[in-house]
Simulated assay, not measured.
Amino acid sequence: MSLALHVTAPSTALYTDLSGYYDLMCADIDYKAQSDHIRRLNRLFGNGASTHLDLACGTGPHIRHFIDYGFQSCGLDINQPMLDLAQVRCPEAEFTLQDMCSFRVNNPVDLITCFLYSIHYNDGICKLKQCLSSVYNALSEGGIFCFNAVEKTKIDNRAFVRHSTEFNDSQFTFSSGWNYSGAGERQSLKLSIEKSNEQESQVWQDEHPMVAVSFDELEQLLLPHFEVHIFEHDYDKITPLQPTSGNAIFVCVKR
């Protein structure tokens, strides 16, 4: 007999309860390629120094690569179980439990990153502005902020990313997709995790509220504080953003 559990959880409950599965959920992500790409952008636009902070760092896979590149890296997240796993992966790094929309650092850093579209976890324009202000205050002179973002007007609510993997004698299937109503400053990330084995089948479903913003709007929020460069969402090469693109990499140099 198959047992199906459909759970709608608060915005961080899925990650809290299933933090041990987070790396499985992201198993198809090329963290090394993403980290190396930002390292190249830092060489082009940064101030030449190598202190680094990763916002919404999760279990620390990007930080691991930056440490291996020679950076002095640290990370923050709002989820302590994630940070516990990150500390095991990166014992050299310092991790703090903080909200990226209102964080502080003891000493300015030269590079701040925010991967996996996590900039959108700022739920609304007001919190996004607070986040950008916190980033500005945390950066050293000439430091840069690199993140990726999705253009709200180009979101296809029908599109989902899906992959499967095996772990501990169970089959896991993960799917995620953006959802935007077409108006306002709120969008959401819909997530689903299916776990099945010989005894049962379970399904966890979650929906994370996020900020919806166009690239033009985002650039206007950044310009008072940063010199802004916007590139194609391509970790193999550095090319300017095309008008039809719905995903972008932002490089923001502190003025």
Rank of each mutant, 00 (worst) to 15 (best):
F115P: 14
L116G: 05
V105A: 05
Q87E: 11
A93C: 13
Y121A: 12
Y69A: 09
I144Q: 10
C126S: 13
G70E: 07
E94P: 00
N106D: 09
L97A: 11
G142W: 15
L85Q: 14
F145K: 08
G46Q: 13
V150M: 07
A149H: 08
I112Q: 09
K154T: 01
Q171I: 04
V135K: 09
N157Y: 02
K154I: 00
N47R: 04
D54Q: 07
A56H: 07
C126N: 08
R158T: 06
Q98C: 10
F145W: 09
Y136P: 02
F167Y: 11
G143T: 02
N137W: 06
R104S: 06
V150H: 05
T96I: 00
L116A: 07
C114F: 13
S164H: 04
I119M: 15
G124A: 07
V150W: 05
S50C: 09
C90N: 15
V135Y: 13
F95L: 14
H163Q: 10
D54W: 10
K152N: 01
L53S: 03
G60I: 06
Y136Q: 08
S73P: 04
R40F: 07
L111R: 06
A49H: 13
D99A: 08
I125Y: 12
T51R: 13
S170I: 03
L53K: 02
D77K: 05
F115Q: 11
V161W: 12
Q98V: 00
Y121N: 09
S164E: 15
G48S: 10
P91N: 12
R104F: 05
R43Q: 12
E151F: 00
G75E: 13
Y121E: 04
A56D: 01
F160M: 04
H120V: 05
A149S: 10
Q98P: 06
G124N: 10
S170L: 10
D54I: 00
R39I: 00
E94Y: 05
G142I: 13
L85T: 01
N79G: 05
I63W: 12
N122I: 04
S118T: 06
V135H: 11
D156K: 02
L132M: 15
G48T: 07
I155K: 00
S50E: 14
N107R: 05
D84W: 06
Q130D: 15
L111E: 00
R89H: 03
D169T: 00
A49E: 14
Q98E: 14
A138G: 03
I119T: 12
V105T: 07
F147E: 09
S140E: 14
